[in-house]
Design a protein around this nucleic acid. Structure first.
Lengths: 230, 230
DNA sequence: TTTTTGTATTATGCATACATTCAGCATAGA
DNA sequence: TCTATGCTGAATGTATGCATAATACAAAAA
């Protein structure tokens, strides 16, 4: 209904590009929680005027990545342990739904892609390459959500996932936890291959609960740091 | 941590106010799907300059209420039947989660509030006052979600709910459907009172599925109209 | 010494001006 | 008559200017 194959120049507007850049800066920790976004500084940094920058900041505020203080601009929001728990709770429900739907709707091509990513991820695990593992892991989860064939689900998942990701960056999981996560992924792939929706739902929800435990322990010192700043 | 009781002047910024006003215009159908948002016209209408208006439009675009066409401004997005199905699918998962959590976490005061709203709703049903019924119904669902004690869930639910609401406005349910919905609500209140999470989860999901059927039949002619415009 | 108040500076909120792109129409050529 | 090209008007995208609120600092009073 909307995408005529190719050849269509899709230059993202300036404010859109800025949202992406700023989001990256926040996720990567270059703009840690509590940082004030100074318009002048950011305008110089990106070489744009204040108008598109302000538009971008407003959008990010609607996504809870920054908080608007009246007449005092925007500050990067902090992720408390409670926030992370809330996020994981909702994402658990979304992934559960995605798992169930994906089992009903996924086709062989998509399944093959996920399997390929899975083996890739196993490789990174074996090599102990954590950042690559994380990226691959993330892609698998996104593919499962995409396989559910529900654009609203995809968008909602992506939004919440984006808010958690900066906590994920800090996560330094133990070898034991890591091995366990990989075993869980084995089961996830099995359930998906067998189109066992109920099982996949259950697996994903537990998998996410375990992820939360990892992130929770990782975020504690950071939360203290934020308190110290304030 | 953040809210010192009262006396805090919370004047919403202009762009925030504009988002609310524009959202209402879209929900109430004054700006039907496909309508182009002309900046000059809207600026005159609201008596503001383009900067805050544009900020508001960008935020609404991030919420999928309008679509941005490069160099051609924004148009109100249409709700196809598929969109509504997607939205209900995700909201079903969210309400299911909310029901389960609410049964665990709700306190007597909140339960009493919901019960009061429920009886109010029964009254509107008896009197055949559909708009009031809708509003009351909406409040009950929001209270249940709120009772889950998860702000992320509340925000996500509210966002999706806002996108569906304009379809709901059109919904003209039959007396039979209406009676059935009320019976479902009786059961919902029972399950919540009994703190039966599993049952409430199930009830809410089916309730929402039935709601979808009502909205689906209501949206069909509108969808055709949109096609005719394009 | 501590607190309070006044002032200066800075940054944000909003308005406006300039640049660029797009749509419509008219005109010329086939 | 139909198509293509160029012009014109209008709307959006971006930049900048102005007014105001907030912070920081200093000075004065308790």
């Amino acid at each position: 209904m909307e995408s005529p194959k190719l050849a269509l120049i899709d230059r993202p507007s300036l404010h859109e590009e800025l949202v992406n850049r700023l989001r990256d800066l926040i996720v990567e920790g270059e703009l840690p929680p509590g940082t004030r976004l100074n318009e002048r500084v950011l305008c110089e940094r990106f070489g744009v005027s204040r108008t598109p920058l302000r538009e971008a900041v407003k959008v990010m505020a609607s996504e809870d990545l920054v908080e608007l203080l009246p007449n005092r601009g925007a500050v990067v929001t902090a992720l408390t342990e409670a926030d992370v728990r809330y996020l994981f709770e909702v994402m658990g429900a979304l992934e559960a739904l995605a798992g169930e739907l994906a089992c009903r709707r996924i086709d062989d091509a998509a399944l093959a892609e996920i399997r390929a990513l899975h083996y890739q991820m196993l490789l990174y695990h074996t090599r102990g390459e954590l950042p690559e593992y994380f990226k691959c892991n993330q892609q698998i989860h996104e593919k499962i959500v995409a396989a559910a064939g529900n654009p609203v689900l995809v968008a909602t998942y992506r939004s919440l996932s984006g808010r958690i990701r900066r906590a994920r960056y800090m996560a330094n999981l133990s070898q034991e936890r890591w091995d366990h996560a990989v075993r869980e992924h084995e089961q996830i792939l099995e359930a998906l291959t067998a189109h066992d929706g109920a099982r996949l739902r259950d697996l994903l929800q537990r998998h996410l609960a375990n992820k939360f435990e990892v992130v929770r322990t990782a975020i504690e010192p950071a939360a203290q740091q934020v308190v110290a700043e304030g």
